[in-house]
């Protein structure tokens, strides 16, 4: 039998021995004492330097080898395999495009996107704008493969960046009234999860919304910028093949590279 007092004692004694994480991780917005934007800039800078250094070394080596007969070649199956988005040159080296620093001067933000990505400015018909000031979709797909976007969401695996007139609403209010967490779209208490985080060195509301029954979910970041709100959003859908080399980490890295004026 389990007398009540005995159960309580066992529970308290044993559960109290479970480990807790370090204090710095307890409060969501305090984690990461350094700025995300700064980290992203440092990482992007370091990546650029490494790519530049590797490219120049390989170029020098190619130039040198061009001047003398090639004695020993790699058998085809011994060539190093390149991880997308890097591609292999005939000489066997892997080449990846240099990341692109994207700047939106009008709305004061920067992003670092992978070198093979490009941005598409979405034309907003004035009659349908409704406070939407600017919209850019960043994609790793070739222009010919680029898919349609809906009024609020780009295709899976693309990053949709929107700037809206904030209309006095906070980021939190936006997150559950004018996005995929809209109670009219997602039943309350259903599949919308909201948390706070730091993006671009400022506080953001982050929502993740599952699309009922599908292996898809939408992640949105809401950032207040004066009388505007900046929204970064992507959809992960494991049923839709992502462009080569793109995964959720790619999208998170782009979001984490956000710099704000």
């Amino acid at each position: 039998m389990l007398p009540e007092l005995s159960i309580e004692r066992v529970f308290r004694r044993e559960i109290d021995t479970l480990p807790v994480p370090p204090e710095r991780s307890w409060v969501p917005t305090e984690r990461g004492a350094h700025s995300v934007a700064l980290s992203a800039a440092v990482i992007a800078g370091a990546a650029l330097l490494v790519i530049a250094a590797v490219s120049s070394v390989l170029d020098v080596s190619d130039a040198a080898s061009a001047q003398r007969p090639r004695l020993i070649g790699f058998p085809p199956n011994a060539l190093p395999r390149c991880t997308p988005p890097a591609t292999q040159t005939p000489s066997g080296r892997c080449v990846a495009p240099v990341p692109i620093a994207y700047r939106n001067q009008a709305y004061g933000y920067n992003l670092v996107i992978p070198g093979e990505w490009h941005d598409v400015q979405i034309q907003i018909p004035p009659q349908r704008a409704g406070g939407l000031l600017d919209r850019q979709v960043f994609t790793g797909r070739a222009a010919s493969d680029w898919l349609m976007v809906t009024d609020t969401t780009a295709a899976a695996w693309d990053l949709d960046v929107q700037v809206w007139d904030r209309r006095g609403l906070s980021a939190t209010e936006w997150s559950y009234t004018l996005g995929p967490c809209d109670h009219a779209v997602v039943s309350f208490g259903g599949h919308c999860q909201s948390t706070t985080g730091r993006v671009g060195g400022v506080d953001a509301i982050i929502t993740t919304v599952a699309v009922g029954g599908n292996p898809a979910y939408t992640v949105s970041y809401y950032i207040e910028r004066g009388d505007r709100i900046l929204i970064l959003r992507y959809v992960i859908n494991t049923n839709a093949a992502p462009p080569a080399g793109v995964n959720e980490e790619t999208l998170q890295r782009i979001v984490a590279s956000l710099g704000l004026d």
Partner: peptide
């Protein structure tokens, strides 16, 4: 309500 993991970004992970 939502068993999916959240995006990590600068969120420190628990070392456990």
């Amino acid at each position: 309500r939502f068993p999916l993991p959240l995006p990590r970004l600068d969120r420190a992970r628990t070392p456990i």
